[in-house]
Structure formats: C-alpha cells, structure tokens
Design a protein around this nucleic acid. Structure first.
Lengths: 339, 339
DNA sequence: TGACACGTTCGAAACGTTTAGATTAGCGTT
DNA sequence: AACGCTAATCTAAACGTTTCGAACGTGTCA
C-alpha cells in the first residue's frame, strides 16, 4: 500500500480510504490510485488488516471424521454458506478424540478465527471455558455438550430412532438388535432412549443382550453384529445408530452366510448417496443435512454480525425415515406401514 | 505480550526470546515470565506473528467437490499430514467451476497461505500466473494443468483404464460403453486414451456412439447410460470414468428394467467404502488415496521447509483394479482372468 | 473581510509480534 | 585498574494495515 501511495503521490491513508470506501476521495486521486494499483499489481494484505481490525473473516470447523458421509455433506454445505458470506473455513478432523479436539481448537484460536462450529467429541474439554470466555462465538453441531451453553443445531435423535424402531416393530419384529457408538455424546444417548421407548411403547421387553456398542468404526459394527448374530436367540432385525458401523454390519451378515433382508432386516442412521442403488436398498434415517449446515452457518453468521448478547439458541430438526427394502415384514402382519 | 512483560517486570523482547527459545534467559526471569503468562492466561497472537514473520503456517486446499469420495479421502489424509506438521488447512470447494476456483484461490492468497494444493478445474485461470510468480508453492493434485509447471501427484490414469477395459475384453465383452467427464482435465483425457488403446490393443473397433460424456454429476451418468442402453446394438458392459456418475448409471440400469451383472456389466473409477458390501459388488479402479494425499502433502511441506529451487517434481502413482462381481464373463471365455 | 463550516487529504499512532543492535553487568586477564 | 569478553537484557524499528484528529483550501454567511 505504501508503494501504491507513493506511485500515486498520495498518502496511505487516502489509499485505505478509497479501498474501504470510508471517506470520499476526489475523482482525480481515485483515478491515480486505481492506476497505481493496476500498475503495481497491489493486493491488500489481509493479515495486516486482521491484526488492526481484530477480525480474520475466517471460521474454524471441527468434525470427528470427514469421511463419515453425514459430516462430509454438512461440511460441504457449511463451506458454501461461509464462502458466500466472504469467510474462509479452516477444517479440522478430531478423529473422535478429545485431546485431538482440544489441540485443534487451540490451533484455530491461535489463528484468531472469528467463530467456531464444533461437532464435538468427548465431553467438554477446553470447549467449556471457551464458551464461557465468550470471546469467540461457538456453535455446536450435531452434538450438544453438557454444561456448555451456546448456540446449537441438532437432530431430534430420540424421535428419529423411535420412529425407525417403531417401524420395525410394525413389520413384526420383536427382537431388534441395536448397535450404538460410545454413549458419551448426546446423539448416541438420545438415540438409545428412542430405541428403548419404542420398545416400551409397544409393550416389548428391552433385552440388554441385544444392545451392543462400539467406537464408530466399521470394524466395531462388524464385531457387534457378529456377537448379535451368534446369540442363541438372535435378533430378526438390527438397527445401527451410526453409518460407518453399518458397513461392518452388512459385512458380518455376509460373512456369516446370511442375507438381508431375507434372514435379517437392517436399518441405520444417516442416509448416503448409494443407498437406493444397490441391493439391498437400505432403510435409513436421513438427516436434513442441507438445513443442518445452513442453520449452523446462519447461527454463527448472526453472532459474527454483532448479535452477541442474545441468549443461546438451540435448533432441533427432524429426521426422516427413508423406507426402502432392507427390512422385511415378519410373520402375519399388516402390510401397510407408513413412515 | 506487553502485559506479560509488565507483570514480570521485563521487556517484551525477553518474553519473545523465552517463548521462541531464540536467546537464553536466566532461570529467574524465566520463572517470573512463566508465572505471569499463567496468571494472565496469555496466548500468543498468531496474526501479529504472521505479519512480522511473513508466514501463516496455513495452507490452502481446493477440490472440485468434497462429496466425491475420492476427494473426501484425500482431503482427510492431507488434513492429517499438515496437522502433524503444525499447519492449518483452509478448505475450499470449487464446484467444478473455473471462476469459483479463481475466486477461492484469491481468497486463500489474500489470507497469505504459505502454500496451495489444488485439484484444479477448468484450464489455467489465475493458477498459471501464481505458479509463475513463484511466491507461494503450488502442488497440483490429481489433475495436471497445461502450461503450469509445478509439483504434482497424479495417477497413471491411462494405464489404470487400460487395465480395466482389458479386463472387460478378456471377459468377452466387445461393445463396451464409456462414460467420461468433460475432457478438459487431464485425468479424463488420459482415461479416454486408456480406453481407446485397450480396444485397439485387442483389435477391437472404437465405436464413437459408445462414448458419452457428462459433467461429473449423478444425473449426467444417468442420462449417458440411458442413451447407451437405448442404442439398437447396446453395449454389454459400461465403464464409468467417474464415481458419482456411476450412481446414475446404476439407477438408469434399474429404471430401464435391466440388472447388473446379468444383463449388463459395470465397472468404474474410484473405489468407495460400500463397494463390497452391497449387490452387485462393483468392480472399480481404486486409487491409492493414502499415498496420493501423503505425497502431495510431502511435496508441499518440502517446499515450505525451504527447498524452493528444485525443479518441479511429478509423481505418478498406480491404480489398482478391484475385481468384484459387477462384470460377468460373456459367452465362451476362459474363466481365469487375473488383475 | 473575517469567521465558520465543509469536503478532502494527510500525518502519525496503533494493532502485537520479531529481531538487530545497543546496553549493561559480571568476570577473568594482564 | 583498565580492558575485553560473554551472557543477559533492553530499546526501538520494523511488518502493512486502519483510523483519529489535524490541516488545508474553498465557499458561504454575517
């Protein structure tokens, strides 16, 4: 900017004023400055600007795994939304590990991000104090966090699983296996409640041996399914509360020589692009990824626009049961089941 | 830092020296400073640091679509690699659009990223001049760029498709449909050559009506497949040069009332996690995503470490044909086909 | 004609670091 | 006692912006 100012024979203050439109500058100087900018190929240094202004127009986004199709989609939507608003997005993957998450958040904060969207992991950690300090606004994505009172957008997980399991019950299933991730994050907790309540509402017992948990990975789903299938009274249906784990479920079913839906019905959380192309077409609970991403972005953008004092807002969206053909009716059962 | 210095009754220079280890500071002052840092909860401002140092320890990464599983995986690997090296990653999606890409790159450059990894789109644009200016190192990912001479890691696309199509030929297929993305990017160009050469090597004619192109999206694959299947002498196999488009292919096959592999064989580029779980299990060309991501990261990290003058390095990796059961042998053909 | 307001431009301080070079203190040598 | 050397510390100038308040010229009004 100094060079531009010299070339145009004006002060840096005038160049800055023109660039930011913060003061009127005469047509003559405007022309000289613009010419100088072109000649020199000048680019404003955003770092210096950030230092002075105290804002980076950059936000941080952390997710457990970007390869989980749910997060992939949401990240994509959020990225677009901030892009439109002229913000850059720093992406971090926390690998379902609290220490990693804390490190990543520190990294982002060091870089003075203006805001944070966090699909958290573990419980609390550094997040709590950041929200309390209230220097940078935080939006929780997908997962609430005990004791951390801030904007959030989540799914009505309990209701979604309730509906899905109720659907299975209507199909005639009585013993329904349930595979969950570690229950220290709110969605897993809520989904489990939905499962139990659906059974109870139908007057069915909750058999604890039908509930297995794992660490979100394919292999965990595989192992859990193997265990379920080797029970002497094995379930006729399995609901997987997590998408990557259902891949393991399908592999286990195949490896054990059974087939879906003939021998065992399967449904899972989170839809994915291939779900209605292959056989079996998986029945899933689809999250409104577009809405989730946009709402999260909007919440944060609103804070960034200056609305700092409003009380925390919690948005709860509804899932949608995508009924396909991976679950079959059992025994003599009414065929008409609506979602 | 000023506050810390005051609280510890030292100068800011001493604090800086301690923090960076650039000079020895006496145990006494060390202790006072560390105490003050704890008391105040001081965090070094990375923006000010960047301004002074001229480095942000942040890199920019642009991909066409993060929802394409190939890019999802590569992004994940790259993110981890830079994370380990203490760099942050700014992610941008260019949506297969050159203007968007140019905008995104400008955004990243404005923010003074130390380096750029680009899975480019369109041809050239602003990229050429950036590489020529040589201020920030650029690594091309997955796609070369005419006239842009810089580090790159790509697949041997031609060979990979050659192998896949040769495999189909060995199975007895003579009319093999080919669905490609727009051919202005190098992989699509090279893959097409691989297709043609495989046919020629087997002494088969290249029938132009069997080659269809689209814009990388599911719907394009759908339309292309519909056209192929309505030819009076329709192909017995289809190879899709792009992963999202193969979803369209599968849907089209289903909608037209055919089934894979009984009526038509299908293979495609890029593997994905579900490929061996569902029916049909798709035969694919798997890219070594881990290696691609790591190599790209290494190339850039090496430049960032100061190795600026070495001539551009181009890494070419090999794809791997994952033979599953979406392609069936045709007529009287030797059954033993190896990859 | 002098006072005043207005529109345009500028000088200089500030943002929070790093770092070159100056300063100081301590200590051993001669 | 004067000197030089080393180690520890400090002063102050950068980095490239934004912005406050001052300065300047011009036109308006009493």
């Amino acid at each position: 900017m100094l060079h531009v100012a010299e070339a145009a024979r004006v002060s840096v203050a005038t160049v800055s004023a023109l660039l930011n439109g913060t003061a009127t500058v005469s047509p003559e100087l405007t022309q000289r400055i613009e010419q100088a900018i072109r000649d020199i190929g000048y680019k404003r240094n955003a770092i210096a600007r950030s230092l002075k202004m105290g804002t980076t127009r950059t936000i941080g986004l952390t997710v457990p795994h970007i390869t989980n199709p749910f997060f992939t989609d949401v990240v994509s939507v959020i990225q677009q939304a901030f892009d439109r608003a002229g913000y850059a997005v720093m992406l971090c993957c926390t690998d379902e590990d609290l220490n990693t998450q804390d490190e990543q958040i520190r990294l982002l904060l060091d870089r003075m991000v203006d805001g944070l969207i966090v699909a958290r992991v573990g419980d609390g950690g550094i997040l709590k104090s950041i929200v309390e300090d209230a220097n940078v606004p935080v939006v929780l994505l997908d997962r609430l966090c005990e004791g951390v009172d801030t904007d959030a957008v989540v799914l009505d997980n309990q209701r979604a699983v309730f509906d899905a399991v109720t659907y299975l019950i209507h199909l005639g299933h009585r013993r329904i296996g349930y595979i969950t991730g570690t229950s220290d994050i709110s969605p897993m907790h809520d989904r489990m409640i939905g499962y139990r309540e659906a059974l109870q509402a139908a007057g069915l017992p909750v058999a604890e041996e039908l509930i297995r948990s794992g660490n979100f990975h394919e292999i965990d789903g595989y192992n859990a399914t193997m265990q379920l299938l080797s029970l002497h009274d094995r379930p006729s249906a399995i609901f997987s509360a997590n998408n990557p784990m259902v891949i393991g479920t399908m592999k286990a079913i195949r490896d054990i020589g059974l087939s879906c839906p003939e021998d065992i019905s399967v449904a899972c959380f989170d839809d994915f692009p291939w779900s209605d192309v292959f056989v079996p077409q998986l029945t899933t609970v689809a999250q409104p990824v577009q809405a989730i991403g946009e709402q999260a972005a909007n919440l944060l953008l609103d804070r960034l626009a200056g609305n700092r004092d409003a009380p925390p807002r919690k948005l709860v969206l509804k899932g949608r049961l995508m009924i396909r053909n991976s679950c079959r009716p059992l025994g003599a059962v009414a065929q008409s089941v609506s979602a």
